[in-house]
Design a protein around this nucleic acid. Structure first.
Lengths: 195, 195
DNA sequence: CTGTTTAATTGACACTGTGTCAATTGACAC
DNA sequence: GTGTCAATTGACACAGTGTCAATTAAACAG
């Protein structure tokens, strides 16, 4: 029934996460995912219409499993803008490593896949909202450094937090996630906070 | 003869730049490049062994045509670290838009193509050297802000200047290249320069 | 227990894109 | 003219995505 149906769907999603994480999101084919799930390649298409849809569903699945909302709570509850900025960076910096494989796959699929490009765009716009909220909190505390508009500061914070930046600092430069979070907080502080 | 041979090779490279630029580096096939050149798809393989080699050769070609060395000269000749940092950012910020299409294609080819990944890596490491030189100049002027090691500052500057950051600020956020350069200079100043 | 439903399987196929190969054309050089 | 070499055409192998039809297997309802 629909019960078994959903179980397999979940098994596919779990397998996708595993295999994508293992390969850093690069060069993973539908057949690899099917094999990891323990079903035939064609059976995957009984649950997901296309590779892009599977990748997209996997990000949503990860958001649930990793409890995105709970993780976002501290930054949202921050009582001042400075704190909110720091907590948002902490949240995101710890979240990226967990979604990295899937994110990278979605990012690379942009080449040929229009739907994948749109899905990625969506996720990034959601992240942007978080950045905007942090900057606005800073602004309404009167703590936004001179020279910044809300829009421009949001743009820069958003860009700073892009996945390729985390990727470069950790994978290429050998930083730990903790170091990444600390320094991003420091730079954001120096860049956006008055005094 | 080899004369005609090289003319066609150049025509292919020119066509590659054109068509890649036009499509933002996304979804461009060997056949598209051949068509743009005005030759058959197979003929492209008489000059370049693979897609990755063509993309790689195109970056080298662009470096020559755009006179990379001349553009690098001002930052190299800077008489103080602060100036060098600003000039390097200016150089790079104005260079990226000109190589964007090819860079993006190379970036996306990483998914399946090992050689493309290596080629991109190489280019990025070269850019990193420029960053390191600027940070070292700053350091030997005694102007590197407290808390930074040369290595860590280089890592951050390098990451800041990554292509996806330029892409996000211009394509997604609508910044002009001039705005990008100005703000990157400002942020780098605030982040790395003492006082 | 039987008949129905539904997930999954197998095998085949269409389609696209990369890369290779063989046979042919056409221009230019000697 | 003959040889050389770039380029052409057409065919092919190969990998990956997505589709389809026929079949198996298991769960479920009566």
């Amino acid at each position: 029934m629909s019960r078994k149906n959903n179980e397999t769907r979940t098994r596919i999603l779990e397998a996708t996460v595993r295999v994508l994480e293992e390969h850093g999101g690069r060069g993973v084919r539908m057949g690899d995912i099917a094999k990891e799930t323990g079903i035939s390649r064609q059976a995957v298409y009984l649950h997901f219409a296309s590779r892009a849809e599977l990748l997209n569903a996997t990000t949503t699945y990860l958001d649930e499993v990793l409890d995105l909302e709970r993780r976002l709570a501290p930054s949202r509850a921050a009582k001042c803008g400075v704190k909110r900025l720091a907590l948002y960076i902490e949240f995101w910096g710890n979240y990226v490593p967990e979604i990295y494989g899937v994110a990278k796959a979605l990012l690379l699929a942009q080449d040929t896949d229009e739907a994948a490009a749109a899905a990625w765009q969506d996720r990034m716009l959601a992240m942007r909202d978080g950045c905007r909220a942090a900057i606005k909190a800073l602004h309404s505390d009167g703590k936004l450094a001179p020279g910044w508009t809300t829009k421009r500061a949001t743009d820069v914070l958003w860009t700073m937090l892009l996945v390729p930046n985390w990727e470069n600092l950790t994978v290429e430069c050998g930083w730990s996630t903790q170091q990444y979070v600390r320094w991003m907080q420091t730079i954001a502080q120096r860049t956006f906070v008055k005094e």
